[in-house]
Design a protein around this nucleic acid. Structure first.
Lengths: 116, 116
DNA sequence: TTGATACTTAGCTCTTGCGCTAAGTGTTGT
DNA sequence: ACAACACTTAGCGCAAGAGCTAAGTATCAA
């Protein structure tokens, strides 16, 4: 729970790169090997691997090596940490909007009382 | 539209800092001055101002100066760019899950045909 | 007018992120 | 055995991010 606050730093940072978002997008269609993913990127394999590591250490993907091939899979649940944060902020604004509406409604009632 | 892709880099980067997320959280309750926001942060004003600028240049907040006070307001609409991206990825997985279920269902039918 | 207030600018460190090359490890196919 | 393959490690260079201090500007209050 308290961990989630720290997690957000890494998660948002991991998502703040087009190469990594492209990997996520690709893995949305199903698992893929590092080589397969790297072919679509415009950089050397070692550079690309770093991106894969970032995604993995932040829990956005899971990887497993079988023979000489490392296969990557999307970890869908992890995205809810980000989505939940966004939802919490949104709820905050909406609560405030509700209070503002309440205020306006109350004022209208007061005016009605005054005018009637 | 095409701009949104580049925007995501900056947006996610802007959100990848606890100080900046704290500002967003605070502004969720309503507008506030830079000084007011800075008081809650554990750093000098010039350092804090940089965070405010990052949030502003990425469109997450709007600021306006009146006299010597700069007031910050949350730009709620901007968050949809991030939310939409997350929703798009999620839709992708769900489409795939649907196809997998379809496949499983089809296989079951085939087996039924075979076993019956 | 003068002092306090609320930023604002300039410029400096230190760390981290992102790319590269070169060389190494473990598997697989012949 | 040995070459090709699929990473993997090590280490370098550059650019950007996040913090600081010191000094400047523009209100506002008395």
């Amino acid at each position: 729970m308290a961990q989630c606050l720290a997690d957000l730093d890494g998660l948002f940072l991991a998502l703040a790169d087009p190469t990594r978002r492209a990997v996520i997008h690709r893995l949305g269609h199903g698992p893929a090997s590092v080589g397969e993913l790297a072919r679509e990127a415009t950089m050397t394999l070692p550079s690309f691997m770093k991106h894969v590591r970032v995604l993995e250490t932040n829990g956005l993907i899971h990887t497993a090596k079988s023979g000489r091939v490392r296969t990557c899979t999307l970890n869908r649940e992890r995205f809810t940490v980000v989505e939940d944060w966004l939802a919490r902020q949104r709820r905050l604004w909406e609560e405030r909007t509700d209070r503002l509406e309440q205020f306006v409604t109350d004022s209208t009632h007061s005016m009605e009382k005054r005018t009637s």
